[in-house]
Structure formats: structure tokens, C-alpha cells
């Protein structure tokens, strides 16, 4: 018997299923990473992912999922499987080497030299 308060449940007899049902691995398609551009001139930034059978549908789902609030002027999608990344365990290789100050503006003390020169030439 249907006792649902939901008219759709009654109309479609959604309440009558008693058998078990399961979905197959891969039935929910592939995964795509989504990149969102907030305004022209800004970088595309990773915001999450969607499941889709192909890139075209992934873009449509990405618009629904990540473009329905706040500003958005463009979206990219790319298959998650195509992302190549470093291992997080290798994080230390990005540590700044204190010996390499020649790569930074702060590694050059021009004012000291100028001041010294000015003092000498007085």
C-alpha cells in the first residue's frame, strides 16, 4: 500500500520497489577536474570535479555545479586521469635554499653601495 505524502511517489509508484538494485563500477562515467575563471584576465583556478561521459558534457555539468553562484566568465575541464602531479612526499624539494638569495630582489643591497659611494665622494 502507498501511504506517501508525496504525490509523485504515489503517481509513479516509487514506493513499490522491493527487489535490490545495484549499479556497476564505471556506470557513473569518468571524472573531470574543473577550473574556474572569475573574471577576464584572471587565472583559471581549480574548484573541484564532475562526473561526465565526455568533456562536452563535463563542461555543461561544471556550469551547473560551479557557475551558478558568484562571478564566472569561463570554465575549463580536463580528465582527472590526465593530471600529472608530484608526490606530496616530495614537498621538500620546493623548499627555498637560503644559499640562493641571488634569485631574489632582497639578495642585492644596492643602497648600501650607493650610500658608501656618496659618503666617500664627499
Amino acid at each position: 500500500m502507498n501511504e506517501s505524502l508525496d504525490p509523485r511517489v504515489n503517481r509513479l509508484r516509487l514506493n513499490n520497489s522491493d527487489g535490490s538494485f545495484s549499479i556497476e563500477e564505471g556506470e557513473n562515467w569518468n571524472v573531470f577536474e574543473v577550473f574556474h575563471q572569475e573574471k577576464r584576465g584572471a587565472h583559471h583556478e581549480h574548484v573541484g570535479c564532475v562526473h561526465a561521459p565526455d568533456a562536452n558534457l563535463a563542461l555543461i555539468f561544471a556550469k551547473e555545479q560551479f557557475g551558478r553562484r558568484k562571478k564566472c566568465v569561463n570554465l575549463w575541464v580536463v580528465r582527472s586521469a590526465d593530471i600529472l602531479a608530484f608526490d606530496l612526499e616530495d614537498e621538500d624539494m620546493f623548499a627555498n635554499n637560503p644559499d640562493k638569495t641571488y634569485r631574489d630582489a632582497s639578495g642585492f643591497k644596492v643602497m648600501e653601495k650607493i650610500n658608501k659611494f656618496k659618503a666617500q665622494s664627499k
Binding site: G26, N28, W29, V31, C49, P53, D54, L57, A81
Partner: peptide, 16 residues
């Protein structure tokens, strides 16, 4: 109907 077999990946998990 939407999933073409040649598009299917063996593992489909998000990276982040």
C-alpha cells in the same frame, strides 16, 4: 547511452 566504451577509463577518481 551517453558513455561510449572507447571513452571509458579503468580508474576514475578525482585528484583533489
Amino acid at each position: 547511452a551517453l558513455m561510449r566504451e572507447e571513452e571509458r577509463e579503468r580508474t576514475a577518481l578525482p585528484v583533489a
